[in-house]
Design a protein around this nucleic acid. Structure first.
Lengths: 247, 247
DNA sequence: CCAAAAGTGTTGAAGTTACACCCATGC
DNA sequence: GCATGGGTGTAACTTCAACACTTTTGG
């Protein structure tokens, strides 16, 4: 008994995405700027939208990622559901919803995802609900619309936990990278300094990076060797029950 | 602009609970039996229901726990959101929904929680949507209604991960317990054998259990010393950044 | 020749694994 | 007195943490 053929927005469920990037120096997040209309409230928000009734949650997250950044098939992990009845408490947020939603008063619960993208692949795109989008370093975000700041904190936490168990960080790096870049990536996710020599030794002993013949070029210091991620080796390790990349 | 004063069920969002217990021998889950009307389909399901528009997700989970088992303030952790449009694909499930829901055709996404209860505290209760409820050993569950089997697997996984980091297992044990019971609990959650001596040494060195003067009584073997969980010590450890109870 | 980041080994401490026998109780 | 689970120690090995200097390049 199908009622409608046209896909229909579900007024009660949305998906929001924490899109992490790494500019080879610090961890960043893609935020949308809602512009001037949010007087007094925060202008920045996580990208997100209501879901369609005929798509599952992962598909909705992928759709939002695609609409905003034109990227498909990227690493995606669910953070969880957030659904305080009063998550829309700031006046500016209410007004904004009225400008973009058919039922701005509806109770909405949102399912948050985080994703990891290689910044170089990202093609920013103006979307229907955002004037502009841009990268902000996570350490410099202090408030966001709705409950998005809280969502960001939980997403950071999940990322931190996950990266201790699986080397998902490679999704944030270009194909070829230096060990220093990898090192800095781990430090910025874990938010603590890691001993350079111990870090390098560990990564190399695991065998999940393969040295290339190339080196960095045009840097004003000793050029660094480039590496790539060794996926086969990682798969092999995972299958043998290896689940601890504890840095 | 409040439209309604009476709390209203939200037709699109439900909460399901994986309630874990431990019978001092194996890990179990509280399931409801939907009775004969589910011809052909699985009779057993996780307890759950639609949420009210004026309660948040944690409150909804607590309400369900309370309705079913009369327990408040128990350990609760979100598993995540599940929302395949075709999660209600079995015919028997559709029929059942028609018997208990106002809008049985609505697209529903569900937010799953797991909780840990001391089995002794549990007072089973007939609920509006279940004929009976009872404990089933997790190792003997092979199918459940809807996508509940999948939810159970994810919940087990999260529990397994969590217990490696925080000693939440004590929520499943009575106030006084033996180290063998604790040992068995860890084995049944992690689904692997653990060396008895190493396990005991580790737990005792951490200092998160306090020996009592009492011993077991009426057992046909050497009676075991009883212990209680040392919460203060655990809090102290947590604050000093200790986050590894890796067994 | 100077500034900047790359790259490299050793040592002591701590933690992990594997393993076998005697003990106290109820029946 | 016997069946049942309770309780204990040690040695080999692996992993982890701390630490400083030389090298190569561009400017």
């Amino acid at each position: 008994m199908q009622k409608k053929v046209i896909p229909e927005l579900n007024p009660n469920v949305s998906v929001d995405c924490v899109i992490f990037g790494f500019d080879l120096d610090k961890l960043t997040v893609l935020l949308i700027d809602r512009g001037q209309q949010t007087q007094g409230g925060p202008r920045l928000a996580l990208p997100g939208n209501l879901i369609y009734n005929d798509e599952n949650l992962d598909q909705a997250a992928n759709r939002i990622l695609n609409e905003l950044a034109g990227i498909n098939n990227i690493y995606l992990e669910q953070v969880g559901a957030f659904g305080d009845p009063n998550r829309i408490c700031k006046e500016a947020d209410k007004e904004w919803l009225q400008s973009i939603r058919a039922e701005p008063e509806a109770r909405v619960i949102t399912v948050a995802y985080y994703s990891l993208v290689k910044m170089a692949d990202y093609a920013p795109r103006a979307s229907s609900f955002a004037k502009t989008a841009g990268w902000a370093p996570v350490t410099q975000i202090f408030e966001l619309a709705f409950d998005h700041y809280e969502i960001l904190q939980v997403a950071k936490d999940k990322l931190r936990q996950k990266i201790k168990i699986q080397p998902i960080g490679f999704n944030l790096l270009p194909e070829k990278f230096t060990l220093s870049q990898l090192h800095k990536l781990y430090e910025s996710i874990l938010e603590k300094p890691l001993d350079k020599r111990n870090f390098r030794r560990k990564v190399q002993k695991l065998g999940i990076v393969t040295p290339l013949k190339e080196k960095q070029q045009g840097v004003p210091h000793k050029p660094s060797r480039l590496y790539k991620f060794n996926e086969e080796k990682y798969e092999a390790l995972s299958k043998n029950g290896y689940d601890n990349f504890d840095f």
